[in-house]
Design a binder for these strands. Sequence first.
RNA 1: GCGGGCGUGAUGGAAUGGUAGACAUACCAGACUUAAAAUCUGUUGGGCCUUGUGCCCGUGUGGGUUCGAGUCCCACCGCCCGCACCA
Length: 891
Amino acid sequence: MSQYTPAEIEARWQQAWEKNETFKAVRDASKPKYYVLEMFPYPSGRIHMGHVRNYTMGDVIARYKIATGHNVLHPMGWDAFGMPAENAAMAIGGHPKDWTYGNIAEMKKQMKPLGLSIDWSREFATCDPEYYGQQQALFIDFLAEGLVYRKNAIVNWDPVDMTVLANEQVEAGRGWRSGALVERRELTQWFFKISEYSNELLEALDSLDNWPAKVKLMQANWIGKSRGLQFAFSTVEAPEGHDRIEVYTTRPDTLLGASFVGISPDHPLAKELEKDNPAVAAFCTECRKGGTTEEAIETAEKLGFDTGITVRHPFDTAHELPVYIANFILMDYGTGAIFGCPAHDERDFEFATKYELPIISTYLPSEESEEILAAAYVPAKTDKVFYNRGFAGEPWQTGNEAIDAAITFCEENGIGQGVTKFRLRDWGLSRQRYWGCPIPVVHCDDCGVVPEKKENLPIELPYDVDFDTPGNPLDRHPTWRDCPCPSCGKPATRETDTMDTFVDSSWYFVRFTAPDATTPTNMEDAEYWMNVDQYIGGVEHAILHLLYSRFFARAMEMTGHLPKSANEPFDALFTQGMVTHEIYYTRNQFRRQDTDEAGKEISVGTTLAVWHLPEDVVVGEVDGQRVGVLKNDFNTSLSFVENFDKVKDDPKKKVDIIPSAKMSKSKKNVVDPLGIIANYGADTARWFVLSDSPPERDVEWTASGAEAAFKHLNRVWNICDRISQMDKDAKGEGDEDLLRAMHKTIHDVTMGVESFGFNAAIAKLYAFTATLQKSKAGHAAQREAIMTLAQLMSPMTPHLAEDIWAHQGGEGLIVTAPWPKADEKMLVDDTVTMPIQINGKRRAEINVPADMAKEEVEKIALAHEAVIRTLDGATPKKVIVVPGRIVNVVA
RNA sequence: GCGGGCGUGAUGGAAUGGUAGACAUACCAGACUUAAAAUCUGUUGGGCCUUGUGCCCGUGUGGGUUCGAGUCCCACCGCCCGCACCA
């Protein structure tokens, strides 16, 4: 009798795979290829359970595809540029490069024991000069194609990180990383022309059948297509050069309801007026300062400044409208100017009420309706309404119909043009930071901005930099900045901005197809391996990373680095849920002045939560409530309730529990994968993160659940051990039943794996294990059953599976053994149990041959005692027989 | 505000329109043990009585379609997520 020893077998089988080069991906035209990829990690230095779940899911797919005869590419790398490395250098000293490569080595060491089917020969980090040098080559090609440009722009400046952020990286007015309030600054910046692809990126979403609808929708909203009318008001008594104000509207049908024109404080006209009117200047300055926090936006009052200028209504030049500078109008959307229609826009209504401007309805719910003046009337654009002030189309029409008619009318009458606008703006990629990919251009007094010559790539980051002063160390590097102009050879200076790290992750998946190529890609490899057949990652990347990557694929096609077929680089996308855990805390009341962990002062009487690691708490149930006791206070010779009684009145010792939340270091509700692997082995960790919850949902890590996974793997191993010790010629009972159950399990697990139903697949494996454990079948059948079970488990628990395979004398490695096929004949039982319903309620069951004729089944059903009793002499109106499923008698 | 998703036992969750609650946790009971742990076995949606091969109710609430609805349709309630002065 031997034992399940994960620590020993996991190391052994990992060595076997490595020696065999099982996961090395080599182009092979004779096999269908399959590229599976998990979003690569940032090398923080420690893996967490989220990583384990993410990579395990990818591994299940990869191993399943290997077993079904695919040539699988399953690579791994490191998203290694970015600010944490610089912050660490500033906080604790050292160099970002050393910190990053140290973390990579450490994390790789932690990942290896998971036994993932990764081709490590393709590994790279985005901070490798070999990688970012090719990225620089791409940049130069993009520049030549006009896909990158430089412009003066008002940018989001993060005062904490001392860098510029893309619009996408500002969340509710705060930097996505630092959380600092973002300021507006004008700087010369590099931009990718992603907006040129707005329509293309929007429309191509339709072709992504294997993407979650939610992600496609988020991207569509982000791109934000709108159709409207652009036209100009002519001004009265405006400064020179401002005789027209261009406006954009999505509701041209409400043009006759216009009661004012509003312009942004950043509008050229506002800036002109600002010059010699201090009141305007004061107002605009106030607006620009305007809070960008969520609360500020929500509570912000609509503020306007009457410029005294008026404009003529395009339909009636005698009708003049006042021009206001208003704080709620954004310069970077539309034209930075609007006309206000208070009757049909809540925001305009609020503004009009405040400044006593007319409220003029253009449409009403019915012909008899009074004009609505108490609130804006904003029905859905698909509702039919009555246009009391319509000028195009029918009196009764939907908003959409009216908009189309209004645009046509205005175009025909030379008032304006129909225009499609997008919310998506160009992607600002300049960052004033050290630890990123240098932008490969040179500034020359004579030649201007000149791209670096490709033979000079990579432009490597200098190692000798200091982080003692804030700002970009490249800017003050003594020699790195100075270089000859690539065009004329005269002394010039390098661009010191580096690229946004989202650039690094926008094409890494392509680089995996030829990581050592001396050009960004190798077309043969790209054509063979692209696209990524299955991409797996967190939903937090639904917009930025995926949108940028889709843009990059197109830009790389345009510059000859990718085939057109790779325009949508991810055929299928799966967004997995997080790993959560409940949170444990005690309370600490401060009796004297003290400081908390962050050094902040705590005043007397303050009660603070003290968080505890799961491993430091014993959890139990008292009066139906989950509570805990600190392990240090726990007396193991007493029951949980007795222990709890001793601490329940002491808030410093009684542990309260907050329901499951995302694992976070600050709340200490983390479980260290290394600890789990040390205690139970990687297979247990892998099995658990896949069981219990559907992969797209969050899974709660529980100690009992992990324990159960471990017990189950032991059970499977013990069954294997028992079967090995059976008499090889032993005959038994129920061979047929066991094999039937086996084939059903093959079928169900295969379906589960194919459809990301890992939790359901695991449930079937539990059930089949129980069947096998109880089976009295002969040796041959049991051996077949355990070997098949091992194969079905192998994507999830590959080490245990290999060990069972070897014990039973399986040929070669299980990882390369062909996936078992369910025998159709074995899936259909000879006899089936059919429930009999009377009026939809189950009343009886019958056992009948599976292929019995409907009429026969009906006869047996009607003859059933319970049916006769329930019918009580009544004649059934109708009998529905669904072969093999159910009988329903309608009385 | 706009857009999307989800509501099933004590808990996580199963159910191509066809026996609701698979599988797991937790709880309870039993076996083994001096005892505990481990292991194994069994019970567990609610209610009713006449304790049966029994009946009634039950997938957020109300309605509808259907022989049959957790599943499809409509309305409402609740929760979650994304976007948001976007003209």
